[in-house]
Design a protein around this nucleic acid. Structure first.
Lengths: 174, 174
DNA sequence: ACATTATAGTTAGCCAGCTAATTATGTCAA
DNA sequence: TTGACATAATTAGCTGGCTAACTATAATGT
């Protein structure tokens, strides 16, 4: 999961939004404000995550790969599957795996049944790296979210679900 | 505002989350699920935005610059200010402005009072470009958010505000 | 069986961010 | 007034995504 986005430090004032809405009648002021704030908070979270991971000599892309491998019962997957789950191209996955293999966190293993394919296995060192990173990450995330009640967390997830549904509208007219 | 992020197509199942929480006691399952969904929806939105802009031959970074200029009463700003508002380095802003000036959407104007500085002005062509893009963007955004009631939009914004507050927790222990 | 097509992974080269260093100008204090 | 420092913008070079092209292997249809 890669989120690369400008930070938009400067959200528009209500006044500016009104001015834009006047020029562009299609504008829905509360939709725009919600959208911008969503992008901004997500970006801030992603940047904070980067900072946390960098203290453990990890980049976000490589870290997600380790997590995806740990999710598997046999700590094993293939480059194609990992690429699809992470939403990156297979070419990008090759690069991520090169980096991880070079520092010994994963291992490429030949697959005799299909000689085109390769198995990727989380090594003991890879698991150890996750055991070092995850408690730190989870602790920060807990603190970051502790201001939200359980019902607010549910609200957030259902609201995000509605937006996700609505996303199909983006592509309506091509 | 730049959001560059992996897509994380594959959110963890409840079962996987439980397994991770067992290994890492610091894990807060509902916090993690909310966080991941937030990142994912924001990424999807950012990608959809890219797609919309590319139909108008614009990249997200350059488009935000045009918007920031249009927010100004005199359609004018400086590279430093724009960089700060967009959350990018001044070096990056130089590149964005090079691109925009080359296609005539903005103009660099010398500042006699401080010869180190340069004014950036939105040109008529730049305004025309926005007039072409914004209705399209606003229409898609309206459709995308139309499933949310006014109170849900308020909920979303206040929830995001709480998370933003909580973000300071990330850096608590260095 | 064998030519066509599909699939897995990699390589080569592009692109738009980034950091660090550079140039030019302005500010301030001894 | 001049030396030290601060600020504005730029340049040079790095990085980690991307697309497109390539190699190797497997599957499929006549």
């Amino acid at each position: 999961m890669w989120l690369i986005m400008l930070q938009l430090r400067d959200l528009p004032t209500q006044e500016v939004l009104q001015r834009f809405a006047q020029r562009y009648p299609a504008a829905d002021v509360t939709a725009i404000a919600s959208f911008l704030m969503l992008l901004r908070v997500a970006t801030d979270l992603s940047i904070a995550l980067d900072a946390c991971l960098s203290k453990h000599d990890l980049l976000q892309g490589r870290w997600w790969v380790l997590i995806l491998l740990m999710r598997e019962a046999d700590l094993t997957s293939t480059p194609s599957t990992l690429a699809e789950k992470l939403g990156v191209t297979r070419a990008t996955m090759t690069g991520l795996l090169d980096g991880l293999e070079q520092v010994g966190l994963v291992q490429r293993v030949a697959v005799p049944e299909d000689r085109r394919s390769v198995k990727i296995r989380l090594t003991a060192a890879g698991q150890a790296k996750l055991d070092a990173v995850m408690p730190d990450y989870y602790t920060r995330l807990r603190l970051c979210m502790q201001g939200l009640s359980e019902s607010q967390r549910n609200d957030l997830q259902s609201i995000l679900g509605v937006i996700d549904q609505g996303m199909s509208a983006w592509d309506f007219n091509q």
